[in-house]
Design a binder for these strands. Structure first.
Lengths: 157, 157
DNA sequence: TCCATTTAGTTTCATATGAAACTATATCGC
DNA sequence: GCGATATAGTTTCATATGAAACTAAATGGA
């Protein structure tokens, strides 16, 4: 790929990524939000608590790449809808453990197969080798971004 | 890749795409927004008008995958900052042609190399073959999403 | 022990966003 | 030509979002 000197949005990778991602996320979100009245942050909280019950809000934030404000709000609305339970930490009064309630678990059990099926549909245009290769590329690029932002942060301090 | 029955966010492709994209877009946006007080929609409008002056708002929307409300607002603030010019369409009174003003062009000329350099930095972790392969995969997946949403739309009507 | 600092989580406020209604112009069918 | 419909673009309104301030609990040092 030659060094470009002109910007063509259609071949600008960050832009292409952004358009693709928004369409995919949008398509998935449409499915579960219609059926369960669930926002994206709420769904992420449910997804991570389904896998790892008893996490604190901070831990949920870390695993979902959301910030603590987003998590706090999602947790509040999920609690209001009785989709989560919250129990105080025994030693640390600031911390609360979060888990899915029966209602939350029911949603989890129904949305997971839906999400996986949409993912399969999305990936079905790629052959197995291509899927592996996508996986590798995403891993490399994500790690690279980790390092890049770590470097930037260090530069600031 | 075996059919998964359990959802692991870290290996769920739509989620990985979303996290990666947000970090990349965020990193780029941070650069130009700080320097030029430019929002993402504004920058997109400038990017597309730099390439194709004289487009209408509707055409800008189409090329940037933004909706017309977003474009309308971005155009308004760019006009207010005298970064665009607007001239009425000769035949059609509803339509206006948009172009970069000298001020807008100056921003374009400065941001384009910055954006391209950040893209190169982002992609630098991949070898040339991998970059080509990323390009191919993005193209296939985007086309696939086009077809999928077209099918859904058709199903609705 | 007590003050300063850190951390978990919430609230506030200002701004961004999207859907739907609206305005103005253009086009189509008759 | 003229009413019905479609299209370009804007406005309104309700909600989502993020940054920063805030509260409460924990920790660390003198």
């Amino acid at each position: 790929m030659p060094n470009k000197t002109r910007l063509d949005l259609d071949s600008f990778v960050p832009y292409r990524l952004s358009v693709l991602t928004n369409r995919v996320s949008g398509a998935i979100a449409r499915h579960y939000s219609e059926r369960f009245d669930l926002s994206v942050p709420e769904w992420r909280v449910i997804a991570v608590l389904g896998q790892a019950p008893g996490l604190s809000a901070r831990e949920v934030a870390k695993r979902t790449a959301m910030d603590k404000v987003q998590v706090s709000r999602a947790v509040q609305s999920l609690l209001a809808a009785k989709r989560l339970t919250r129990t105080a930490h025994l030693q640390d009064g600031r911390v609360a453990h979060l888990s899915l309630s029966a209602r939350g678990q029911a949603i989890y059990d129904e949305v997971v197969p839906l999400a996986l099926s949409l993912e399969r549909q999305f990936l079905s245009v790629l052959g197995p080798g291509e899927q592996k290769s996508l996986d590798t590329l995403l891993t490399k690029l994500s790690r690279h971004m980790d390092r890049m932002s770590a470097t930037e942060d260090a530069a600031l301090s």
